[in-house]
Design a protein around this nucleic acid. Structure first.
Lengths: 211, 211
DNA sequence: TAAAAATGCTAACAATTGTTAGCGGGTTAT
DNA sequence: ATAACCCGCTAACAATTGTTAGCATTTTTA
């Protein structure tokens, strides 16, 4: 009632609109992912985030426990996503190495197209995690690259893949895919499926036209 | 003399050691590039930088005018470097499209190996430039990609290159090269020349072994 | 409908940010 | 030797940072 005595206009508190099937925390994380992508984790302030959520900064802390936690959720959700996919691919029988590589590539591209903000952020901003999480993420990333390298080395042994340095091939693949960022910004986008086919083709068969 | 009255030990001021052929400003920018790469532009403070230079934060301002200026110097020096190279390649007569692409690729890889910190920073942190410089950089980057795309489209027309979407090929190329970051961190590095050959080969002829 | 839980607000905090002012010692040029 | 300049220092600034405390309001539960 005190508020009524001090101001004659009723106080209306902004509420975080939550979509069906999503908590308010999910809304905050989604907005955060967008801002982290645009400006980077460090350059995004909690007041910044709050404004985009439509609420005061302090109110965010009813849903999350710290700024760091937001980044953790984004990074580990994405990492787990990729991890479980590669395990699935690896366990599939009757697949050539090239087919496995194609499956991994296509999954990366799809993820980049469908969950752009979070995949992008988790790839570029994971360095800002703090220490139990930071080491964990480093380990996980190394393990992930190692699994892909094994697929490639397997393919080399079977004569399906050129005898190149497998870790080099992995880093080319993964970074090439993260280039979809530029595609997202570009004016004249080609369709997602065309992009996917082009990327897979270039990485598997190269730029040069065979004679 | 006042200082002598207050403390019995003589005051020794740290001086920025400058290498031959380099100003103190150059030293600051080099250290900044290293820190910006490790922690990002926003997460690097001037006191942080000062400590690595071996000086107090305020002293930096005898050599640079702002934190923003440091980023500008790094970004535009690198950008100009790439711009003049592609002009040179473009002007070279009697070169096939594939040869031009190879020359561009090799230049990128070399730059990444030789000027790692600055190239990396200018690629990942240019978004933190402020506005006259930000727009300028955006324009320059777009123009640069466009020139490479033209080379590719030319190659497609002449039947040297597969008929793929040229902008897609460009973004794959450029981002693949920036993956050398992972190579720098990796324990068991292969030699720079091997890396270069591998990358060029994969991008030009793909992973798959021809039958 | 009353109690409990969830969620918002304002105000404030301590720390950190980039940067400036002003001073003095050290080096170089006259 | 003396003047001028370069360059480092300390101290301080206003702004911004992430976060907490305490209270008010709305929504859910009983």
């Amino acid at each position: 009632m005190l508020a009524f005595l001090l101001s004659l206009t009723p106080i209306i508190m902004a509420k975080i609109k939550r979509n069906r099937n999503g908590t308010r925390k999910d809304v905050i994380i989604a907005k955060a992912a967008k801002l982290f992508r645009e400006k980077g984790f460090s350059a995004t302030s909690m007041r910044d985030l709050a404004e985009h959520v439509g609420v005061e900064a302090a109110s965010l802390y009813n849903h999350i426990s710290s700024k760091a936690e937001i980044l953790q959720e984004i990074c580990f959700k994405t990492a787990n996503n990729f991890m479980s996919h590669i395990e699935e691919v690896d366990a599939t029988p009757n697949k050539t190495a090239i087919e496995k590589i194609q499956a991994i590539l296509r999954f990366h591209i799809r993820q980049m197209l469908d969950n752009y903000e979070e995949v992008y952020v988790s790839d570029r901003e994971w360095k800002h995690l703090t220490d139990p999480y930071l080491s964990n993420m480093q380990t996980q990333r190394r393990a992930y690259r190692q699994r892909i390298a094994s697929v490639i080395e397997d393919g080399i042994r079977k004569g399906e893949i050129k005898p190149i340095d497998a870790p080099t091939a992995v880093l080319i693949m993964l970074h090439a895919v993260s280039g979809i960022e530029s595609w997202h910004r570009s004016k004249k986008k080609i369709a997602g499926e065309v992009l996917e086919d082009n990327m897979v083709q270039i990485l598997v068969d190269g730029l040069r036209k065979q004679a």
